[in-house]
Design a protein around this nucleic acid. Structure first.
Length: 882
RNA sequence: GGGCGGUUAGCUCAGUGGUAGAGCACUUCGUUCACACCGAAGGGGUCACAGGUUCAAAUCCUGUACCGCCCACCA
């Protein structure tokens, strides 16, 4: 490397692409073939093919890359397997939206043409996000990339469905589910959002059939009363003593419905009586099941009134009314029903009320709880081994608090609605025979063979996306085939994901893994923080509050962005992003660049250096190596605990403060001296190699570039394939650290003293005097305090003084001392000293403290007090000299 | 309603029993031959509040307030 050619600014963009290509060409993204190496495996959370990079991704994927890079340095054979999720509903609605822009739609095209169209779209732009992971520097094994619609993957999905169907773990049932009337499908909870809107609470009069009075109920959805099948009260509610069992005539319709007792109604709320509409409310549905009530549906799949299931139970007048409501929208029906209730004298009152609604993420339409026939999976049964494994820490969560959160969810898991009324997804492999039997099979032919009779149809629905993603850790490795990869890489090591999908995805992978492979799919689950804006608000594309990571990468670099996010990653549940922080990170990159440039300028010897004999090392060399040793331990233990922010803190402090601010500055005189330069050269190169290696998981590009310049022996082909530093135990020297820190205190005091008399930093003064013991470190004080020489004793003439680290410093003053300024400085010091002395004396005079506190604490405080008193006395003396 | 996390310098955050820390921002000084995306010095905090435990509490316990998230949602 021609050092003169190194610019004084680090250029991230050219460096980053250069090295990414080099690593990939060298095959470094694939696991090592060496069978003796322990393995480390991550299957990344497959992003949706519709996905585009956001700040959450910019944290999640580099975090996995960083863990992988660290494990690789630890000598492991690392596989990080990437891929993508077909993301049924998300993709279908994106493509459908495109079609609508073109004046057509999925419905017009039909199932087959539509699916073809989605495939086309995927080929065009489905890989965008994976390419963005490359820009972030993610060392993923692209040769093993998987898609949940790969042929082998589809086979795995079907096999699981068929096996579980045959074992009775998957079954068809009628339940109230989240229904999206716009997309006309059931949706999972994660695809919905709960909101509260201002609405009305309608109080309605429901008369008894025998004319003996009435029950008043309250509802926010009056239009659903058309499908009411009962009114429920709490059994302990005295107001309804003796009334339960009576029959009510449903207003407008004339249907006769019972007054029943159930634990569901809250006697505190309203009149304590609840109308029961089992087909359109999840709670009502449960009541309906308990009391074997009919469950008529009055809304169609687009949420328009549909009367055929209720019409037969209405009286003549009721039928006429129902006809008038038929095909009205939810809102129209509400208005009509309320008007008719009012006209009929059934409306008691209308109150303002906050009503909870569920919004579909994709369509933004209001979710309708709707009774429909769907496929379900018996999750509660499958959760058994998982609950045990998590409880026993066979699978560990980081941060650990998610363990309890997970267990609570797992223990109360409901049945899992598997079916979606979409076209983009794995079609449910259930076939109906001529005789009406159902059979699950891989194909039409297999179904016929299995059933022993002709098949008339296949189920139209597709599977919930999470069913296929649940197989991710093993289906990507070839399961159910006994493939070499499955044998070699399963179970995987760590799963990194967002806390929002613990139940939806992590839980499914766990029980699918245990049931289907008999092993845990991974050992550790790492939950990372949500990336927020600096003001604490969410980053949201629709609100325009997002920051595009690609723009940041282009202007400030992927390494700077990685540092920004990873250096804020620990056990926190959110972090705040601002571009300013990435500018700081960019500055850190530049500092590393320039410090390395400086070292290279000072290590121009053609042959590489050997470690000097220990006796050649000065205290300051020993100090830096000791700090390096401590930093290595801090960084390694922090990485192991996924406490990335602590690792970053240790690296930052070591590099900027210890290596740059102190060691390099102190070493400059030796580096400029031919005869003495070898030791600091060796120390700098040793520290730099270790530092760059330790930092490389977080800033892979910059560190790789600088490593390539280092004139050291035994270099790895790439820093990425280097080994984690193994530092000799002799590097650790606590006593040297303490001694040097004390010397730095003296230097700081001298600099402050100079500043107090307006002496510019770095402006050399002829002499500084001192009293006390500087050990062998006087030269540090001289050079770092910018003095030509240091002399023992007190100077002649005027001077100002300071005390630190047990040393008195005297700085001669030319001309007059600025008395007022000096007095002010001494006053300030005196106030501070007196304050501390008072506090400390009180403590020392407390016999309880002396008796009960640890002896070393008492001893330390005693010494402190003596020192403070000593400094107070000196302060007084210095006043007299003014 | 239940659970979890948070509240420390102007901002963003470290700090789990022994004299309050970092980065940024701010003030003053400085372009000296690694770096002005830099260096030196400095100002700035009764650690949300109230009790308690302890010789000693930002730190442990109890309660309160506010912010955020999750779960269950009262029709």
């Amino acid at each position: 490397m021609n050092i003169e050619a190194m610019p004084t600014r680090y250029d991230a963009s050219s460096t980053e692409t250069k090295w990414y290509t080099a690593w990939e060409d060298a095959g470094l993204f694939q696991p090592s073939d060496d069978p003796t190496k322990p393995k480390y495996v991550i299957t990344i959370p497959p992003p949706n093919i519709t996905g585009s990079l956001h700040m959450g991704h910019a944290l999640c994927y580099p975090l996995q890359d960083m863990i992988g890079r660290y494990q690789r340095l630890q000598g492991k054979s690392v596989l990080i397997l990437p891929g993508q999720d077909h993301a049924g509903i998300a993709t279908q609605s994106v493509v459908d939206k495109q079609l609508r822009k073109e004046g057509t739609s999925a419905a017009v095209l039909g199932r087959e043409k539509f699916t073809e169209r989605v495939w086309e779209w995927r080929k065009e732009s489905g890989d965008t996000i994976l390419n963005q992971f490359r820009a972030l520097g993610c060392a993923f094994d692209w040769s093993r990339s998987r898609f949940t619609f790969d042929d082998e993957y589809v086979r795995a999905v079907l096999k699981v469905f068929i096996d579980w169907f045959d074992r009775g773990l998957i079954f068809k049932g009628k339940r109230v589910v989240n229904w999206d009337p716009k997309l006309k499908t059931s949706v999972s909870d994660i695809e919905t959002e709960r909101q509260t809107i201002k609405g009305k609470l309608y109080h309605l009069r429901y008369p008894f059939t025998d004319g003996s009075g009435e029950v008043v109920i309250a509802t926010t959805r009056p239009e659903t009363m058309l499908a009411d099948v009962a009114v429920a009260v709490h059994p302990s509610d005295k107001r309804y003593d003796g009334l339960v069992g009576k029959t009510i005539r449903l207003p407008l319709i004339g249907r006769e419905i019972p007054l029943i007792a159930d634990l569901y109604p809250d006697p505190e709320f309203g009149t304590g009586a609840v109308k029961i509409t089992p087909a359109h409310d999840a709670n009502d549905y449960q009541v309906g099941v308990r009391h074997s009530l009919p469950m008529p549906v009055i809304l169609d799949s687009e949420a328009y009134i549909k009367i055929d299931e209720v019409i037969d139970f209405a009286d003549a007048e009721g039928r006429k009314r129902l006809e008038s409501y038929n095909n009205l929208s939810r809102n129209e029906a509400r208005n009509a029903v309320v008007k008719d209730l009012e006209d009929g004298g059934y409306l008691v009152k209308i109150e303002d009320h906050d009503i909870p609604i569920i919004i579909s993420d994709r369509s933004k339409d209001i979710i309708e709880p709707l009774l429909s026939e769907q496929w379900f999976c018996d999750q509660p049964k499958l959760f058994g081994p998982v609950i045990e494994a998590v409880r026993n820490d066979e699978v560990r969560f980081h941060p650990a608090r998610y363990k309890e959160i997970f267990l609570e969810g797992a223990e109360s898991a409901p049945e899992w609605c598997l079916s979606r009324q979409l076209w983009w997804g794995h079609r449910i492999p259930v076939y109906t025979t001529v005789s009406g039997k159902t059979v699950a099979a891989h194909s039409w032919q297999e179904a016929e063979t299995k059933a022993g009779e002709g098949i008339v149809s296949q189920d139209e629905d597709v599977l919930d996306t999470w069913f296929s993603s649940g197989l991710w850790p093993f289906a990507t490795l070839g399961w159910p085939e006994k493939s070499a990869d499955l044998d070699r890489f399963y179970p995987t090591s760590t799963l990194v994901t967002d806390r929002n999908i613990i139940k939806l995805w992590v839980a499914r992978m766990l029980f699918m893994g245990y049931d289907l492979t008999g092993q845990k799919p991974f050992s550790d689950v790492v939950i990372y923080a949500t990336v927020m804006r600096e003001d604490g608000r969410r980053m949201s594309k629709s609100l325009g509050t997002g920051v595009d990571p690609m723009t940041i990468i282009e202007t400030l670099g992927a390494d700077a962005l990685r540092w920004t996010l990873l250096s804020q990653t620990g056990e926190n549940q959110e972090l705040r992003y601002s571009e300013r922080k990435t500018e700081d990170a960019r500055n850190f990159c530049n500092k590393i660049w320039n410090a390395t440039r400086f070292v290279l300028m000072n290590c121009t010897a053609t042959e590489t250096l050997q470690a000097p004999p220990a006796s050649d090392l000065e205290k300051i060399d020993q100090w830096l190596l000791s700090r390096l040793h401590a930093t290595e331990i801090a960084v390694r233990t922090a990485y192991e605990r996924y406490d990335i922010q602590s690792a970053c803190q240790a690296l930052y402090r070591f590099f900027w403060s210890e290596l740059c601010d102190w060691y390099i500055e102190i070493s400059k005189p030796r580096l400029n001296d031919e005869a003495r330069r070898e030791v600091p050269q060796w120390v700098l190169l040793t520290a730099l190699e270790a530092f760059l290696t330790m930092l490389s998981p977080i800033m892979p590009h910059l560190t790789e570039e600088l490593y390539s310049f280092l004139p050291i022996s035994g270099k790895a082909a790439f820093l990425m394939s280097n080994a984690w530093p193994e530092l000799p135990a002799e590097f650790a020297q606590d006593a040297v650290e303490a001694e040097i820190e004390r010397t730095f205190d003296v230097v700081r005091a001298l600099r402050a003293l100079r500043a107090s008399v307006d002496l510019a930093a770095m402006k050399t003064v002829p002499a500084v005097y001192f009293e006390g013991d500087l050990g062998g470190n006087a030269s540090i004080v001289t050079s770092q305090g910018w003095a030509e020489r240091l002399e023992a004793g007190k100077p002649e003439g005027k001077f100002v003084s300071a005390t630190a680290g047990g040393v008195d410093l005297h700085l001669p003053i030319e001309g007059l001392v600025d008395k007022e300024k000096e007095l002010a400085r001494l006053d300030k010091e005196q106030t501070k000293l007196l304050d501390e002395i008072t506090k400390l004396s009180l403590r020392m005079e407390n016999p309880q403290f002396v008796e009960r506190a640890k002896p070393e604490v008492v001893e330390r405080e005693r010494a402190n007090l003596a020192d403070l008193n000593d400094r107070l006395a000196k302060n007084a003396e210095r006043r007299k000299l003014l």
